[in-house]
């Protein structure tokens, strides 16, 4: 149960965050999508062990989070959900590679330490970039941006339908779950042997609901595809943002600011 309500709560939280009116929220969705993709590509292209090259990229999420007024708690929640597998990879690197990278004062920095920090930092940067995008852009706007980038309409329609009906079907599941747990008070979750009828019932209910939705849509003139009206492309100002950001990202990729600054102290 907590699983269902937590997930729904998370979606609601994001939808609420979308409603804010900040500089980042007001940016064109297609521009935000493009900038996020560029950022991800550049961050991912940094080679293993080069932690110093990754650090300057923290500027983007920090500035983005503050300007978009995203709560730190939400961010941490996302990171906790997304990190386990990466954490495993990072920590295993720590133990598996004990080659000395360089000594520093009395401490020896190993390649494993570098690659552990690298994997974790890279993970944080990439997750935060996506969270900034989704916390500041509504699903409808994102779908329009996808259409602008020529994503096939059937995919966009599917995403729209699936997203719209998660709440409805999850609520159905939640009612069934309540019914089950009330009759089996000591059970922590549904017993594996009852999962067949439980999910089967949910499928049948979902099918029937889909049928009703289809009929309702048909009454309103549905002809197989949802038509998306209104163009939300990228304006001249939008392109300006894209080019400036791309310039900064590439410059940071080519010049290692951390090393340059570090040399000043040595």
């Amino acid at each position: 149960m907590s699983n269902i309500s937590n997930s729904l709560l998370q979606m609601n939280n994001i939808e609420n965050m979308n409603q804010k009116n900040t500089v980042i929220h007001r940016m064109e969705p297609a521009v935000k999508l493009l900038i996020t993709l560029m950022y991800l590509i550049v961050v991912i292209s940094v080679n293993p062990y080069q932690v110093s090259r990754l650090i300057p990229y923290l500027f983007y999420p920090v500035i983005g989070i503050i300007l978009a007024e995203i709560s730190l708690r939400t961010m941490i929640k996302y990171l906790v959900i997304a990190m386990p597998f990466t954490l495993f990879t990072g920590i295993s690197n720590l133990f598996l590679n004990r080659e000395i990278a360089f000594p520093m004062a009395n401490v020896v920095i190993t390649q494993g330490m570098l690659s552990c920090c690298f994997v974790l930092l890279k993970s944080i940067l990439t997750i935060l970039a996506v969270v900034i995008l989704t916390s500041t852009t509504s699903m409808d706007d994102l779908l329009y941006a996808m259409i602008h980038f020529k994503v096939p309409i059937i995919i966009v329609t599917q995403i729209m339908f699936t997203y719209r009906y998660i709440g409805v079907i999850a609520e159905e599941a939640s009612i069934m779950y309540h019914g089950y747990i009330l009759r089996a008070p000591k059970a922590k979750a549904i017993k594996a042997k009852d999962m067949g009828p439980f999910l089967g019932q949910l499928i049948i209910r979902s099918f029937d609901r889909a049928e009703r939705i289809y009929q309702a849509m048909k009454c309103r003139g549905f002809e197989g595809y949802v038509s998306f009206s209104g163009k939300k492309g990228i304006s001249g100002k939008g392109w300006f943002y894209v080019v400036i950001t791309a310039g900064i990202l590439i410059a940071l990729r080519l010049v290692n600011i951390s090393i340059l600054l570090g040399k000043l102290f040595m």
Binding site: N3, Y165, V168, A173, K191, A192, L199, L202, I203, F207
Partner: peptide
Amino acid sequence: KKIPMMGVMGAFVFAAQMINFT
């Protein structure tokens, strides 16, 4: 008819993934 059906079934898989079993 299958277009909304696919969407609703997508939502079903989501809901199904939220339900834990022992």
